[in-house]
Design a protein around this nucleic acid. Structure first.
Lengths: 343, 343
DNA sequence: ATGAAAGCGCTAACAG
DNA sequence: CTGTTAGCGCTTTCAT
């Protein structure tokens, strides 16, 4: 008596719904396809059958058929970093809002991304958004070949594999310079992290160039990583140079926070009286009391929406020319660039 | 002459590989199936054909057939919060390490999760991991019915829909109490955020109970959200009460950091001389110079691995009894509970 | 060890 | 408007 009745936990299929509603499977399919022609009555019957059974179309099957999933891979490194977390949060929300499903790929010390990324491609991705880790060329090519829209956020401009959202380093440099100069800085320094991210390196060199083009001096202070600890250590390490400066560009808020603590606690300098400081990104901690750090905001929300829009556009016009967009920057003036009594 | 030749960007299928290698599609499939029987020679032929064509098995089709995807949904709220970001990072890594693909669902002001979550279920999830947002009952039931393993991290114990990783609030309370008491605190206060997360509320009440069971006093200071700003505001608001206390449990590092700044900059109290402070989570900022906050570490990495292991176990034994695990806690002693010259 | 055949659950082209 | 039919790309008996 081993009667083989369908197990209780089987998902109902369109077949089940069709049978219960007394229609064909195509009817069911049409019922769940936005622009399909179906009579009001059948639709109702199907709908009630569907809800009764708890039917939900199997996305895998649907995607297999339509050769297109709603899956979008997000590749992000250093997710535990405040700005990156914000970026990813907004990306995820923006994608979901547009009906996509974000697949999260966190990769750090560039542990061989290649296999991972290309295994994501197995899912017939609707797109891929990369923030801050340069995807291996193989993957970029693969995306191109498979016509998977690829959006790079703040990535190196070279490989030109996909659409890009890119910081306008010139504009950034000018904004930062203005903030520091207006606050009275004349002898500049900038933190140069050694883990060379394009954006960050770009900011450093653009800033230096700009400062020098004004006939002012700009020291580059090397510091290991883009972290609080590195920022602080760097200040200690370059103490002498620092004493000759009155304006510091932290390159990144995380670095800037570390630097601020170094300036105050290690070198006993007053900010902004002895030295003005500006960061970049406007992470939450920049506004915390001990920092009150002037910075430049990158609007993660707008950036995310732009990324999704670019992806969607590419999806519709795979052969359109590559786009590159500069999202807007907004200077945030806080205590570290406050005007002090001159003279 | 509109010759319809296969578009260049079509993915090669097992069929293409089979043809090139001169074998059947089944052979190709077997070649990519771990424990299948296939001769060394055919395997080689197939493999080289596969690499030549750049073949990768279509995950959608595979999953459709096997009724099981490698997709795991992570539901996380407040991703832009340091501890949550760390959690998600580790979850993502742990999942990927085990061959799963994390789908990221960020939901905040509990914008109707239900449709979202259940639409995720359309992907034949291999599991679902929820951190900090209680999933609607409907979804929990759905998971149960569809036998989708559900792991809840630090969620309310009531619905008992899935396996849980849960803070041991008693142990947490004892750890915190010890840290404060040992540092000399006798008159306690605790921050009570109004956005009632189970874990957080549990910490608050367990702590208060414990303190009172020792015959000591414990004031609950209400504060709006679990944020830096709320922590700081709360201190200002409860200034009088605070002045009568010498030990504060911040409930969350974010709150504790805000509180610390409130204590120092608004009430002009010295920490730890006038009042000792302990946070919870050990976010990076707790170790920053201005805070140097004693706290209790929840090991996000271990937590994530545990979550994935539990998920995997449930996948293999859907009917095993529900598990509940308490991940270990580790007190981190820093400046805010330093012993000061007594008397 | 291998190939033929039968689907997984769905959609879409085509008749009616 | 509706049902029939033919797959999407893969896996998996089942013979051979």
């Amino acid at each position: 008596m081993t009667e083989r009745r369908p197990p209780e936990h089987r998902r109902p299929t369109s077949h089940d719904v069709a049978r219960l509603a007394g229609v064909s499977r195509s009817a069911v399919s049409r019922c769940f396809t936005p622009g399909a022609s179906i009579s009001e009555e059948t639709r109702n019957r199907i709908m009630s059958a569907a809800t009764e059974l708890g039917y939900r179309a199997n996305a895998l099957a649907r995607n297999l058929k339509s050769q297109q999933s709603q899956l979008v891979a997000i590749l992000a490194s250093r997710l535990d970093t405040p700005f990156r977390a914000r970026q990813v949060k907004h990306l995820s929300r923006a994608l979901i809002a547009e009906g996509f499903r974000p697949l999260l790929l966190t990769a750090d010390h560039s542990d061989d991304l290649e296999p991972l990324l290309s295994s994501m491609l197995d899912y017939n991705l609707a797109g891929m958004i990369v923030t801050s880790d340069t995807p291996p060329v193989a993957v970029v090519d693969e995306c191109k070949r498979l016509r998977v829209p690829l959006v790079l956020i703040n990535r190196n401009p070279e490989p030109d594999g996909g659409d890009r959202i890119q910081l306008d380093t010139r504009a950034a440099a000018e904004t930062v310079f203005d903030m520091l100069y207006t606050a009275g800085a004349r002898r500049f320094a900038v933190l140069r992290p050694e883990d060379r991210t394009y954006t960050v390196m770009g900011r450093v060199s653009a800033f230096c160039e700009l400062v020098r083009s004004k006939g002012l001096s700009c020291h580059q202070l090397s510091c290991g990583t883009q972290s609080y600890a590195a920022g602080r250590a760097s200040i200690r390490q370059h103490a002498e140079l620092i004493h000759g400066c009155d304006g510091l560009f932290g390159t990144t808020d995380l670095l800037a926070c570390g630097a601020l603590d170094g300036l105050k606690h290690d070198l006993f300098l007053r900010v902004p009286e002895d030295i003005r400081v500006v960061g970049f990104d406007d992470i939450e901690q920049a506004s915390w009391a001990p920092y009150d750090l002037s910075t430049v905001r990158q609007d993660a929300g707008a950036q995310a929406e732009l990324a999704v829009a670019m992806m969607r556009a590419r999806l519709q016009a795979p052969d359109a020319p590559i786009r590159r967009e500069h999202p807007p920057l907004q200077p945030i003036l806080r205590g570290t660039t406050e005007k002090t009594e001159t003279r």
